[in-house]
Amino acid sequence: MTMAGEDRVYPSARGVGSMTTVEAFQDRHVGMVVARTPLQFAAARLRHDYVALCSLLFIALLVVFAFSGPLFESWTNHPVNKSNSSGVDDYTLLPVGPLGGCPNGLASVGEPHCFVLGASNSLGYDMLVQLSYGARTSLIIGVVATILTVAAALLLGVVAGYVGGWTDTAIARLMDIVAAFPFLLFAVAASVAFGPSLWFVILIIAFFSWFYPGRIFRGEVLALRDREFVTAARMLGASNTRIILRHLLPQLIGPATVYTSLSIAVAIAAEAALSYLGFGLPLEIPSWGRMISDAVPGGLYINAPFLMMFPGTLLILTVLAFNLLGDGLRDALDPRGGTQI
């Protein structure tokens, strides 16, 4: 899987304003000279990156939406994964009206058995409830798979870069091999053997994503390994473990933050694609990908395109938000972008 935001040549082409660091700083602290840590610089740059801020806001709203599942259930009186016969056409089980089966539109929300966003598929699920639980699934898989991905990438990338020699060659070749093979085909095959489960999806996504940040971390460590501060630490008698933990790892916090955001986007997209094909997650776990595929059989989406448009749009926005946030973080954390805010 590839991540967005590869080989950016200059920091930003979107509206970051033309102020330099110094100007904007003087703007707020006239006549003062205050020392600032790199983190404060990064935060200052991020504060002026409106695209990244909007992404962050969207992600925050999504988290709230994902946690509101039980609230929506009690509000609409439609439990998750349950067919609701009222408010739907008797034959097709599609919602009546453009957005749902509420007789008086949104005004009658709160009355029991009233659909809010329509049924999620021909089964007559409530779309709002399914979307909310699907958001929860996406976020859980995105975050857990990313933790595993970044941890594996840090471990193998740092070991490869620091130890060098045949260890490095072996790990680098492994990265090339994993990178060359199609995730979806292998995940479909593996899901036949392992059967559907949440952990299977998380592990298979992590297994096919760690190589990308791993390559980046390896490159960083290769460049850092021979720098003076590492040589100085070694001369003072620091052990390899201490050099890696105290001197090298802090340098990797920046790229690790960026790739955390980018791999959440990759993991969410991968889960949705796998669920769209009908593999990976068990049926009782709601998923946006499956909601899209549920809208397909028998040309259902032709009569009711909303069935796929709600989960599809939400999926695009979520993946885009994590990608844009990662891109913004890269610009903010890159010390070479120091002249721009």
């Binding site: 979107r14 899209i292 989406y301 993946v319 990608n323």
Partner: peptide, 26 residues
């Protein structure tokens, strides 16, 4: 044009092909 293609790159990589396919079919 350059700015436009930067936006295209960022958006293009976030699109799920199957959903775009369904939209195109519709």
């Amino acid at each position: 044009l350059d700015r436009g293609s930067t936006v295209f790159v960022l958006v293009g990589q976030s699109l799920p092909v199957y959903y775009i396919g369904l939209l195109a079919l519709y």
